[in-house]
Design a protein around this nucleic acid. Structure first.
Length: 693
RNA sequence: GCCCCCUUAGCUCAGUCGGCAGAGCACAGCCAUGGUAAGGCUGGUGUCGUCGGUUCGAUUCCGACAGGGGGCUCCA
């Protein structure tokens, strides 16, 4: 029927509209609420403006602001407003790209005269953006040939570079023009006569639709991420569909800040980074040292039970070892420079433990009967991290890996990988992390040793094992180490952030380089397979992740001080001492806090110290042989608890490594973002400690 | 390494438009002996990150260095 188009909606229904109707018309025809919430549309799966004309027979979905792709539209549109504001404030600035990122957006600029943004500029830019939003400028899409585009952006070198890339077919061209032209073209969005940006779109209909945004920080960033190219000035911001969503996001960020392990490390007296020692080189104080010891003790216990053997190796080695291993070819940038000893002999601090473990394997002839051999070491390694990337305990220059190398026969490889993965996940759960997915990292292009066949086999084996785990599995193309592909375990913490935890790497290369062999059943020599794996990654980083996961309130079994006994008055001190002794006698870490201050003050200090238990003892307790139990996280203290009963229940809690009931949650009790956001959240999405070895 | 910001008491921070500095908490002493999140009084606290420059005089201005924070593959 002429003059009418029929479109299908996501619920399967169809709707007829006059020919030439737009997605916005469709939204309005469905209902005013949808029309108000709409920011864009999907026509046959393609994200387009609301102003897009509906083709007959299309599948159409209206995209609202709260949807993931709707938020991206909002953020991208806000980025354009940011660019317009900066161009108003810095006439002659060059603008580069302004993409959407997780939870926000940024825009890169080159300011006239090499000017730089400072923090103070954020306020001015913010005000200008709000003015642009108040003007309610429409976003109007135009399409151009490459030549037209180059002319429009004649004085914008970065835009021209992008357009030229489109013209050369280098950039994907997914915005097929409405008239079906196949030749390269570009599109622009015009906000006002004064501002047009090159953009694929889509955008909200007008700037008035925006407003729930916050500019966050300025930073330098290289054009195209390449440090050989010009450094641009970047502004980061976040934008949301409502004031409430924005507030929630900012609250989550504030919560992350509150949990920052660097802050907790000072507050709880766990560790510090003395300037005198150097950047990225932490020292652990007695309380932090206790936590480390406990983490390591339990790890040792589990590794013994799982058939690992403990080895120890030195921190430095002659250069030859890392020449053989290939580290000096592939990892030299990450190593501290050598020291010269014994008349020119070069020694290196070790960045990885693997070559040392290989030498232990090679110390004598090995039989197939011995395999698999599993060597474990808390091995301290040193890596020269660039000065700008060291970060708390998560990115350091000296760290201790809970590093193991498994040497096995090829026919044992699959089983060994699978049991290792199960072991790793099981132990991580005991530390309180239980929300995992796996990531498979494949061959890094141009930065790998070994043949394609070897890589293919190793990768296929890893994939098979990983997909048998019943967890989500992502592929990280090109993210492997130079000597082999890896599986990494990603864990979500209490506030929904993802951390890379353990890595399991398959290595066909090192056994070859070191000429490793064992004697098989056939009395011939064979080459073993090598599996590298770290469970914590590094003790330091895992410590930091646990600290943030628990917001400093470590489970009782890991708490440096588990119980503090508080006598109400001086004359209860002797009894308090007896209670403390009883607990200490069964291995509980207990402190006495004498009545030098009022009880309330001591309770408060104990709470700020995040102690699992505060025991208050007064007249009633001395008379009855009881304690008052104030439990961390409990709503009210429990009076008159038998000392024996408390001791037994505490011993049980510790032995069972019980976890605190409520770990997560933001201060207002709300879960993170609406719409089931999988946001990794701000801040510490730590990269792993790099390749283990 | 590069860009922006920061460095003042143990911690968090104020301050000096250039004349050797302050608050709260913490710490010490005394008083108060208090049943579950801060009792009172008194007191000491600093090479104002380091080195150099400008200046009669620098914690303050300039520079270098060190340390810290935020970024630097999320491709119109």
């Amino acid at each position: 029927m002429a003059g009418v188009v029929t479109v299908s909606l996501p619920d399967g229904s169809t709707r007829q509209l006059p020919d030439g109707s737009t997605a916005a018309d469709l939204a309005a025809s469905v209902g005013p609420r949808l029309a108000k919430a709409a920011v864009a549309a999907r026509i046959d799966g393609r994200l387009v403006d609301l102003a897009a004309v509906l083709p007959d027979g299309a599948d159409v979905a209206i995209v609202t602001a709260e949807a993931a792709d709707g938020r991206e539209v909002l953020r991208h549109s806000t980025a354009h407003v940011l660019a317009q504001a900066v161009l108003r404030l810095w006439p002659g600035a060059h603008y580069a790209i302004g993409p959407v990122i997780e939870d926000g957006f940024y825009y890169d600029f080159e300011l006239p005269g090499g000017a730089r943004f400072t923090d103070d500029d954020l306020g001015r830019i913010d005000a200008e953006m709000r003015a642009i939003i108040a003007e309610d400028q429409p976003f109007v899409r135009h399409e151009h040939t490459v030549e037209e585009g180059l002319a429009i952006f004649a004085d914008q070198p970065f835009k021209r570079e992008i357009i030229e890339a489109v013209g050369a077919g280098a950039a994907e061209v997914d915005a097929v023009p409405a008239d079906g032209r196949a030749d390269p073209h570009v599109s622009t969005y015009e906000n006002s006569p004064a501002f047009t940006d090159l953009c694929r779109g889509p955008h909200v209909p007008a700037t008035g639709r925006l407003g729930h945004f916050a500019l966050q920080r300025v930073a330098g960033a290289y054009w195209r991420g390449d440090e050989k190219r010009p450094q641009l000035q970047r502004v980061y911001g976040t934008a949301w569909e409502s004031a409430k969503a924005l507030e929630q996001h900012l609250a989550l960020r504030a919560e992350a800040e509150r949990r920052d392990h660097r802050k907790l490390g000072v507050e709880l007296d766990l560790f510090s980074f003395p300037d005198e020692i150097g950047s990225g080189l932490p020292v652990f104080h007695p309380k932090g040292g206790t936590v480390r010891r406990l983490m390591e003790e339990y790890s040792r216990q589990r590794h013994v039970a799982a058939g690992y053997e403990f080895v120890t190796t030195p921190h430095i080695t002659k250069a030859g070892l890392f020449e053989t291993s290939g580290h000096l070819d592939w990892f030299a940038d990450g190593m501290f420079p050598p020291m010269e000893l014994d008349g020119g002999q070069q020694y290196y601090l070790k960045p990885m433990n693997c070559p040392f473990h290989i030498l232990i394997f090679k110390a004598r002839q090995r039989s197939y009967r011995e395999l698999p051999l599993r060597f474990f070491e808390f091995g301290t390694v040193y890596r020269y991290e660039k000065s700008g990337v060291v970060h708390g305990l998560t990115r350091v220059r000296g760290m201790t890996q809970d590093d193991a190398h498994i040497f096995c026969r090829r026919d044992q490889m699959s089983e060994e990988l699978s049991s290792t993965l199960h072991f790793v996940l099981d132990v991580l759960r005991d530390y309180g992390l239980d929300d995992f997915y796996l990531e498979l990292s494949t061959k890094p292009p141009g930065k790998a040793v070994g043949t394609d066949e070897e890589w293919d086999e190793a990768t296929a084996t890893l994939r098979e094992v990983a997909s048998g785990m019943g967890l989500g599995l992502l592929t990280d193309e090109g993210g492997g180490a130079f000597y082999g592909p890896k599986i990494s375990v990603q864990a979500k913490d209490a506030i929904g952030r993802t951390h890379q935890m353990s890595t399991i790497q398959l290595d066909f290369q090192e056994p070859q380089r070191f000429g490793m062999e064992y004697v098989g059943q056939d009395n011939a020599r064979h080459r073993p397979i090598m599996i590298h794996r770290a469970l914590f990654g590094s003790v330091e980083r895992f410590f930091a992740i646990l600290l943030e996961h628990y917001a400093g309130a470590l489970p009782t079994w890991l708490s440096p001080v588990q119980v503090r006994v508080l006598p109400v008055r001086d004359d209860h001190l002797a009894y308090a001492g007896k209670v403390a002794d009883r607990l200490a006698a069964v291995g509980v870490r207990v402190e006495l806090d004498p009545a030098d201050e009022p009880l309330g003050a001591r309770i408060r200090r104990g709470k700020l110290d995040k102690l699992p238990y505060l025991l208050v003892v007064g007249d009633d307790d001395v008379a009855a042989g009881t304690v008052g139990v104030n439990r961390r996280g409990g709503d009210r203290p429990q009076r008159g608890v038998e000392v024996m009963a408390f001791t037994e229940s505490l011993e049980h809690e510790i032995a069972a490594r019980q976890l605190p009931e409520a770990v997560g949650g933001t201060p207002d009790g709300e879960a993170s973002g609406s719409g089931g956001a999988t946001a990794a959240g701000p801040g510490v999405t730590g990269r792993g400690g790099g390749p283990v070895g």
